[in-house]
Nucleic acid binder design. Structure first.
Length: 426
RNA sequence: GGAGAGGUGGCUGAGCGGCUGAAAGCGCUCCCCUGCUAAGGGAGUAUGGGCUAAUACCCCAUCGAGGGUUCGAAUCCCUCCCUCUCCGCCA
């Protein structure tokens, strides 16, 4: 949520900023609503103040055995007026809240201009895509050849966009998550968390998935619960209604969870393979920092994620999302894209964002800068470190050999039970 | 799922229609005293909103959440949520 005070103080600047995302903010209508709110609110509050003092006087009069009938009549009259003002205020508040909750975050000045993915800005590349002297297979061809990946059985029990992994492929999948968790906990200082996979609507509002993106979610129980689309939701909600001490910062959490996405509106896209599934595993990093540190924290977070790709020997690039492509709640986002030989292109494998105080305001996540000082909103950030399914795809495709086997990166050795090569047996 | 008890400030815990934004204790901050330690004395210590140059006043709201009764609700009534105890069920 944006700062309502900023919206009042400088609505034009807000409108200009949001226009870079292609979002239209009607300043005039907002100003009108806001003026109405102000008038009705101060009227209601001064009536309340009057009522409070008169009621207090009734109590005092009673105690001294005086007759309070006249005072009571007065207050009763006030009460009716007050009621109508409060109803009016409630309605205006509702309208303003609905408006506010539907407004995306302000963009950082560094966010590149542009209207879609074509306008994203490449920041850097790492690694050299392998120069195969044979025609590289895609991950499905590799997996199916070994009989270790099966989308037909998954389709039979669940439908499209699900998959079954077996044997050494399932092992590799598990090894990847363990490897990622260990890097971030032992290497980067994140605390591991186990969290609920079912959350309520308020939690999803806190991170920005609701109310606007309901169609991307799987709902249960008549929409009382939703399957999490990312661990960002439960992790960020750990901060709900809390005031951290300065000594608790930076606050760094990591969780490995399944993620569930309806993928509405993506029909026809990536229908083959594991790239776009309704259910996938992800290791997610979430951090909360002091406002003045969030910019640096985004750089650091991105580096933490890059370590995983480097260790796995996967060529990637980092891009800065443009105004038209960046997510609703983010002020700035770096996507990490991994090289996929079968597609001869880079594909998203992680997204690292600075939300500034946008989510913090929604979940009321604050910290106390110093003793005796007033609480202040935190800045939240998160990044995938990484999407496990897509990492599996990237490992298979980038480390394949001419005989159709796949070399397992050395860093996974502790979890692979001696398996150093997939599909080498035949 | 059944029966009962309960949800009050950072914590413990009083209050059960007006004098209570909330006793008392603990904790924390500052000051005083004490040669050190221990003890002691005093002051302060919620959050959000409005107004504002102001993190100064003042005003409004908040005692799990939402409704209701009343001139007035932490206190009475209704609904919901959560916690605890016992029973049942269960990985």
């Amino acid at each position: 949520m944006l700062d309502p005070k900023l919206l009042r103080a400088d609505p034009r600047a807000v409108a200009e900023n949001l226009a870079r995302r292609g979002f239209v903010f009607d300043v005039a209508i907002y100003a009108e609503l806001e003026a109405e709110r102000k008038a009705v609110q101060s009227a209601a509050e001064s009536l309340q103040a009057q009522r409070n003092t008169l009621s207090k006087r009734i109590g005092e009069a009673r105690q001294q055995g005086e007759d309070a009938a006249e005072l009571m009549a007065q207050v009763s009259d006030l009460g009716d007026q007050l009621k109508s003002r409060q109803v009016a205020l409630g309605l205006i508040r509702q309208k303003l809240d609905a408006w506010l909750i539907g407004m995306p975050n302000l963009l950082d000045p560094e966010v590149p201009d542009g209207k879609d993915a074509k306008d994203n800005l490449e920041l850097r590349r790492w690694g050299e895509p392998a120069d195969f002297d044979f025609e590289p297979l895609d991950h499905m061809q590799l997996g199916e050849r070994w009989g270790l990946i099966d989308t037909e059985q998954a389709a039979a029990m669940s439908g499209a966009r699900f998959s079954v992994l077996q044997g050494e492929l399932a092992l590799l999948h598990r090894a990847l998550t363990q490897f990622m968790l260990d890097i971030h906990t032992r290497g980067h200082g994140y605390q591991e968390c186990y969290v609920p996979y079912l959350v309520n609507a308020a939690s999803l509002e806190g991170t920005g998935q609701l109310p606007k993106f309901r169609e991307d979610l799987f709902a249960l129980d008549g929409e009382e619960h939703f399957l999490i689309p990312t661990a960002e939701v439960p992790l960020t909600n750990l901060l709900r209604d809390t005031i951290l001490e300065a000594s608790d910062l930076p606050w760094k959490k990591v969780a490995h969870t399944p993620c569930f996405r309806a993928e509405a509106g993506s029909y026809g896209m990536d229908t083959r393979g594991l790239i776009r599934q309704h259910q996938f595993e992800k290791v997610e990093l979430v951090l909360a920092v002091r406002p003045e540190e969030s910019e640096a924290a985004l750089e650091e977070l991105t580096l933490h994620v890059e370590v995983v790709l480097k260790e796995l020997g996967l060529p990637y690039r980092v891009i800065s999302l443009c105004g038209g492509d960046i997510g609703f709640a983010a002020a700035r986002t770096y996507d990490l894209e991994v090289w996929l030989p079968s597609q001869k292109t880079y594909r998203e494998i992680s997204s690292c964002s600075n939300f500034r105080d946008f989510q913090a305001r929604r979940v009321k996540a604050r910290f106390r800068p110093g003793p005796e000082e007033a609480p202040q909103l935190l800045h939240t950030l998160n990044g995938s470190g990484l999407a496990v399914g897509r990492t599996l795809v990237a490992v298979l495709e980038n480390h394949q050999c001419e005989d159709g086997s796949v070399r397992i990166p050395e860093c996974l050795e502790p979890w692979m039970g001696g398996v150093t090569r997939l599909g080498a047996a035949e």
